[in-house]
Design a protein around this nucleic acid. Structure first.
Lengths: 187, 187
DNA sequence: ACCTGAACACCGTTCAAGT
DNA sequence: ACCTGAACACCGTTCAAGT
């Protein structure tokens, strides 16, 4: 990459971070280019799709959760680890309005620049769930996709001003549902 | 209302129904006017906001669920009634893509033409929940807003192609969580 | 009283022309 | 190799001018 191009790439990423933080994942791409003082075509050259820009903006956050999840897999308590992952996912998606909708769309679209990251995250959750199930700490009739659906639903609620305040409580309710197995006491 | 105006109103409502069914609640209003063969200003005259059009389109559906809920309040089993209401709400919102997002926004916006309907629906659910709680059939640490949040989350999952197939199952999981009270057997 | 559609201020996306 | 921005095809919304 030519050094002037590299400069534009870095600038667009920085401004992209800013604008997505303000306006969410449906932010105006024109606005990103405008604020970066760059032609709209330059933005499209470096980030051919909205998802490509989002992927670059969210790269670090995805990686952090993935690393955390790998640690959680080795932790002592399989059920606590699972609940921690739920909280991590809700916190991650809460950083940007609309992110959970973008991620949910990306799971169904193999061509999306966000697809691989979302599949990874689903895998992390699935492993934590499987471990909890093996240890008899989680109900066995749900799988990794169900778990992702539940955490996505909570993340979506977190995006809605009328429900955001309830999410902590509802996460407990849902965590209890996932962890409820016959013979286990109510938390 | 003049008879020519009445004609336009009815036509716009009919076409509105059609277009919202096809494109969801974020449908192009221009497209509605175009298909109705009417100036865009005429649409805005009869339906000053998108929500006003949606309210007219959804009026019947809202009323049906409200009537059903009133019947459910008198039914024998408080917990089964509550689960039936959850299913009714998910079915109602599933009829139009984006509807749950519109309704969730309307709950927070007193000026929305959808506000009153959404508050009514929340009230129906809250009464069914309260009854189940009084009979010791539902956990006591959630209220009507929590219940609406949970059913809205399920409705949102139903709007996502990657999760829609799981919603029946996840409704069971969540219903179990709501109905789970100490001393109650797993279903 | 009601209808019309141009006008305004935005989008996303592409691509010919420039450096 | 890269950048630019006009061009195209859309929006939502308002409002002066017409019937």
């Amino acid at each position: 990459m030519r050094s002037d191009a590299k400069k534009n790439y870095d600038l667009l990423l920085e401004i992209g971070r800013e604008v997505v933080a303000e306006q969410g994942t449906e932010a105006s791409l024109r606005d990103v280019a405008r604020r970066a003082g760059v032609g709209i075509g330059t933005l499209y050259r470096h980030f051919p799709t909205r998802e490509a820009l989002l992927e670059a903006v969210l790269r670090e956050g995805f990686d952090q959760v993935t690393v955390r999840a790998a640690e959680l897999e080795k932790s002592g308590s399989a059920d606590e680890a699972l609940v921690s992952w739920l909280r991590d996912m809700v916190a991650l998606t809460h950083r940007h309005r609309g992110l959970i909708a973008s991620m949910t769309a990306a799971i169904a679209d193999e061509d999306s620049a966000l697809h691989a990251s979302c599949v990874m995250l689903r895998g992390s959750g699935a492993r934590l769930l499987a471990r909890a199930q093996e240890k008899g700490r989680a109900r066995r009739d749900i799988d990794g996709t169900d778990l992702l659906a539940l955490v996505s639903a909570l993340a979506w609620l977190n995006d809605q001003p009328s429900f955001a305040a309830r999410v902590d409580h509802l996460l407990d309710v849902i965590a209890n549902a996932v962890l409820a197995v016959p013979g286990r006491a109510e938390v």
